[in-house]
């Protein structure tokens, strides 16, 4: 139901470079814990919701243990591991 645009994150290889987390946007309520635990790959937008940065956007790998901690500690249980194909 929507048009694709060059800025469309889902039409790009999400993981050019490093593995990262995905956000269940329905579950996410913007606690911001992920941005604290994954400072290299997650920043918060102007409303406090996470933006997961790809390598092309300047994101760097925060490491497997930090990702696991972020998934475990998200108060909304909104983070999950990227399914790699």
């Amino acid at each position: 139901m929507t048009a694709s645009s060059p800025t469309d994150r889902r039409d790009r290889p999400a993981l050019a470079g490093h593995p990262t987390v995905r956000v269940d946007r329905v579950a996410c309520t913007g606690h911001g814990v992920c941005a604290s635990l994954l400072p290299g790959s997650v920043r918060l937008d102007e409303w406090g919701y996470p933006v997961v940065l790809t390598a092309a956007e300047g994101g760097v790998d925060d490491g497997e243990s930090a990702r696991a901690a972020a998934v475990r500690l998200c108060p909304a249980m909104a983070l999950y591991a990227e399914r790699r194909s």
Binding site: M1, T2, A3, S4, S5, D8, V23, D24, R25, Y49
Partner: peptide, 22 residues
């Protein structure tokens, strides 16, 4: 903002509106 909301909804509604706005 249009670039920022794109790809960040459960569905593609924000992507669509962002595309129209752009």
């Amino acid at each position: 903002r249009a670039a920022s909301v794109t790809g960040r909804g459960a569905c593609r509604f924000p992507d669509g509106v962002a595309g129209l706005a752009t």
